[in-house]
């Protein structure tokens, strides 16, 4: 079972919801797919094992290269250039499509592994914690996300903390999800960004539920939209200064008796949608 947590807007409360659900669901696994800004692990004290993630990039054998420039012309990402009569690779632009190797008529290109970041794994109480980090300057973390998703344990509940936005990395994160939770905040900005992720979950035909975080007197902004799109609201997390402070110190607010009930209620609602 995979449950993905997403929100178009940054700072809406995705990670708050994800880490606290993990904390309260027995034996559940936490998978942080926000590999550009991985903050989820700050909530779980653990020792982490790291594993490098590689992609394939071309390596040119200059003894065989005749400088015909077919590979340079083929590369749509401009990762290969004609550098003073020699083909040169810019690994940071390479998408690992393998095209250069295919077009080379002189067998001068092989593919070698290039690290783009790593994934880490740790234990917190009875939970498995996974996450990854993309190296600064690398364009795409899709390979890291796909490796992370493959760590999901089919026998258990896996909570997937998605990246912000609605780009390809979010698509990769939710592709196998059985249920998606959208997290929004009651402002017109929150609504605008909720519309974007809702479009995405609709495209993928996902079963979804909505949580309003920082709930206040303006919840109707989000509720009205949910009504017109027939989205069930599975929970509210009211704005509270104490909660905000605990969370900003990277503490699990569901360990606090005042805030635990919000998350228990959300879990009860999820149970009506999927088997936990």
């Amino acid at each position: 079972m995979q449950i993905a947590i997403l929100s178009g807007k940054g700072g809406a409360g995705k990670t708050l919801v994800a880490v606290n659900l993990v904390n309260l669901i027995n034996l559940s696994t936490y998978i942080d797919c926000d590999v550009e800004e991985p903050n989820g692990k700050l909530y779980f004290s653990s020792e982490y094992n790291k594993k490098d993630i590689n992609v394939l990039v071309p390596k040119i054998n200059y003894k065989k290269c005749t400088h015909c420039n077919k590979c340079v012309d083929f590369c749509r990402y401009n990762a290969l250039i004609d550098f003073l009569g020699k083909v040169k690779l810019l690994p940071s632009l390479c998408h690992s499509c393998g095209g250069c190797k295919l077009v080379c008529e002189f067998d001068a290109i092989t593919e070698v592994k290039e690290p783009i970041g790593y994934i880490y794994q740790g234990d917190y109480k009875y939970h498995q914690i996974y996450g990854g980090e993309l190296k600064i300057g690398k364009e795409s973390g899709i390979e890291i996300i796909s490796q992370l998703i493959s760590k999901a344990d089919k026998e258990k509940i896996n909570i997937i903390d998605c990246p912000p936005g609605n780009g390809c990395s979010v698509m990769e994160s939710i592709e196998q999800a059985d249920y998606c939770i959208l997290v929004s905040e009651p402002t017109i900005f929150g609504l605008e960004n909720l519309k974007l992720v809702h479009e995405l979950t609709t495209l993928y035909n996902k079963n979804i539920g909505l949580i309003i975080n920082k709930a206040n007197d303006y919840n109707n902004i989000i509720e009205d939209f949910a009504k017109t799109k027939d989205i069930s609201i599975i929970g509210y997390i009211p704005f509270d200064k104490e909660l905000a402070k605990l969370n900003s110190n990277q503490q699990l607010v569901s360990d606090n008796n005042k805030f635990k009930p919000y998350f228990i209620k959300i879990i009860e609602q999820i149970k009506q949608e999927v088997d936990l």
Partner: peptide
């Protein structure tokens, strides 16, 4: 170019 406009410029200058 969506990717590597600066890189192609460097190639041009060379």
């Amino acid at each position: 170019e969506l990717h590597g406009a600066g890189v192609k410029t460097a190639e041009f200058l060379l």
